[in-house]
Amino acid sequence: MNQPASAYFIEDRHDPNETHTLAVLVQNEPGVLARVIGLFSGRGYNIESLTVSETEAQKHLSRITIVTTGTPMVIAQIKNQLDRMIPVYQVVDMTQTKRSIERELAMVKVRGQGEHRVEALRLADAFRARVIDATTESFVFEITGNTDKINQYIDLMRPLGLVEVSRTGVAAIGRGPEGM
């Protein structure tokens, strides 16, 4: 290994990256989201998607769902680093449980005429996307599904006059009767 002149040991790491979805239960208090995001930026972790909302208002609990990528060692670090934050109750690796359902919602605006309009509607039907707004030259579709399905739908809309997309990011929940 060639070492540049440095006070640090420079390592090449070759472990392959994995994508994991983490559900993080936190106390809903000022700054909690900044803490979580700051952890990711400060330690150089990736955020592919992040959603957050209060889920139990009485107990001031919020749920943050994060999709991240990294080597297995980095993923383990991320979970431990999240878990040790003071306002974090619990971190569940939804990917590791292998029993989770993930969904995203997207609103997709498409502008076009004639054949393109017909085609867009036909595809929307196939993807179970709903029309939630329409003018004589445009549609806004609402589509729910996993990330792959939404990516695919957006790709198909592109040649048909895709104008813009708004996505919620991933929410995840475990299958079966048990809670987190």
Binding site: Y8, F9, M73
Partner: peptide, 29 residues
């Protein structure tokens, strides 16, 4: 820590390692 280990892939290659720490994020970092 990196001042301790030197080159990580050549750090104490033949040993079984026990690690006591109060902070789980120190483990396998």
């Amino acid at each position: 820590d990196d001042r301790i280990t030197g080159r990580v892939d050549a750090f104490s290659p033949g040993s079984k390692k026990i690690h006591i720490d109060i902070d789980p994020s120190s483990i396998n970092k």
